[in-house]
């Protein structure tokens, strides 16, 4: 079984847990004491991932340390439709968004770590870079909407959407509001309404899709 070294509050770890849930792959989750233990920076953990980052995926003799590569692995194995359309342009666009998701992590993700887990750094710069990245995402999704499109690439959700979703949806944790990004907000709603969607702290499914709780 695939093992995932995981931290429940990590946007990158959630990205992989969400993808696995969407394609129906079960994983063994190994909880790592990221905060406050910093176990991902320990000597023992460095044997697994010298970079000291989470998540880490282990399947047999394969070790992956980049979350976007894990999305490709899960999709290719269990849900190839999540790889996006097969033509050259679409394939390149998917890669473009996978790389772009790293910019969301380096800006919105760092702002969130600053506000939630007391990371030190230039919070104003992280938020400004986060807004700059959200403007790009908003422009792209708005143009897709003009053509009737609902997803970043192609007619169905893909690993491109899943890669960009967590840090965009969690932006408020880092003090960056989504108020100015209507197309991003509607897109996060579509992802939260997907079959087999799973939650993490800070990202809930659409309450209105569940029945009103009954009082005993």
């Amino acid at each position: 079984m695939i093992q995932l070294y995981d931290y429940v509050l990590s946007a990158s770890c959630y990205k992989v847990r969400l993808m696995a849930a969407l394609v129906g792959v079960k994983m063994d989750l190994e909880a790592v004491d990221f905060h406050p233990g910093r176990a991902h920076k320990s000597v023992e953990f460095a044997q697994l991932n010298p970079a000291g980052t989470l998540p880490v995926m282990v399947d047999g003799d394969m070790i992956l340390t980049e979350s976007t590569a894990m999305l490709v692995y899960l999709a290719k194995r269990a849900g190839p439709q999540w790889l996006g359309p097969d033509d050259a342009k679409s394939a390149a666009q998917v890669q473009q968004w996978l790389a772009f998701s790293g910019r969301l992590a380096a800006s919105l993700g760092m702002a969130r770590l600053h506000d939630m887990l007391l990371y030190k750094g230039d919070i104003d710069a992280w938020r400004a870079q986060g807004h700059a990245a959200l403007r790009e995402l908003e422009a792209a999704l708005t143009e897709r909407r003009f053509a009737g499109g609902e997803w970043l690439v192609g007619d169905t959700p893909s690993i491109a959407d899943i890669a960009c979703f967590p840090n965009a949806a969690l932006s408020q944790d880092g003090g960056v509001s989504l108020d100015a990004y209507p197309s991003v907000r509607l897109w996060t709603r579509r992802i939260r309404a997907l079959d087999r969607f799973i939650e993490m702290p800070g990202i809930h499914r659409l309450h209105e899709l569940s029945p009103t709780p009954k009082v005993a």
Partner: peptide, 15 residues
């Protein structure tokens, strides 16, 4: 405070 196209049925937004 917004455009109709950004507020479908069943949605709330800040204004």
């Amino acid at each position: 405070t917004g455009l109709s196209q950004d507020l479908p049925k069943g949605v709330v937004m800040a204004g």
